[in-house]
Design a protein around this nucleic acid. Structure first.
Lengths: 140, 140
DNA sequence: ACAATCGCAACCACAAAAGTTACATGACCA
DNA sequence: TGGTCATGTAACTTTTGTGGTTGCGATTGT
């Protein structure tokens, strides 16, 4: 698949859930809908649960549900929950040998960080309810 | 290395070059400085040459130089030269099976596109000369 | 007890990217 | 002319990230 498949899976799943928040869904259901498999779904959704966006329950009638109202979950929440960091600051690994490097790294990093913040800001302006809402939806 | 190592390498190298534009540098020099290897450097810088940001010369006193003044090379130029697309629009691959999918994909895509444009705009506002200068990045 | 469901760990497979090697080409210089 | 230094490129290997798969334990409801 692609680079953003986790984010994509998360967004789509939440979008669906926003359409019927009462319903509990199993990872098997979600997986089939997303054309993937239950373990992968649990991996991704697990992160969303850690971030407090979803709840999951084991056992017979268990499964996944939104932890709060769709209007109160933004795309930024999702993005941050799966620490994806599209604009990865990159090579902060090696210690610069000369001062120019040092300054440069700081410089470059600060620019990239600012960009990342800007991105998050944008994402925070949209909720999964909005992502869902556009049409009357009674899917399969 | 990391995900953005190409962009990072490009930025750092240009930053150095901006510090002494007259000097011609070999890919070996640059590679050593960047902790990588000459072929990788040539691959990345090759893209920048294609975009008209750098010139290269073979032969004895050959190497790489800026194709124009540091003040006239923006971060956007660099970013675009290495068609990186940080905010990859991602999954336009599979055709949605149900309407929720469809709406979701369009929505998500449009948000990401807007963000990408904004990013480029932001990058265009900074030149590599500014990145080089020790202080005073005065970002917006 | 039993079945359904998540949680998790241990793999495999695949793809993208960096790193590496090798060699052809071109430019300069003695 | 011959030698050396550089880029340009192709081919290969290594590394890394990620999805997919299997298996099993833990938990919950009937």
């Amino acid at each position: 698949m692609k680079r953003n498949s986790r984010l994509s899976l998360a967004l789509h799943t939440l979008g669906h859930m926003a359409g019927d928040p009462e319903r509990t869904r199993t990872s098997a259901d979600i997986a089939e809908h997303a054309g993937t498999n239950p373990v992968v779904v649990r991996r991704v959704l697990g992160k969303l649960r850690e971030a407090g966006l979803l709840t999951s329950e084991k056992g017979h009638a268990g499964g996944w549900r939104l932890a709060r109202a769709p209007e109160q979950i933004t795309l930024a929440d999702v993005y941050l929950a799966l620490d994806e960091s599209l604009v990865a600051t990159g090579a902060t690994e090696q210690v610069p040998s000369c001062s120019v490097e040092h300054v440069l790294q700081r410089k470059v990093s600060s620019v990239l960080e600012e960009i990342e913040l800007n991105l998050i800001e944008r994402l925070a302006a949209t909720t999964i309810a909005e992502v869902r809402d556009t049409e009357g939806v009674a899917h399969t």
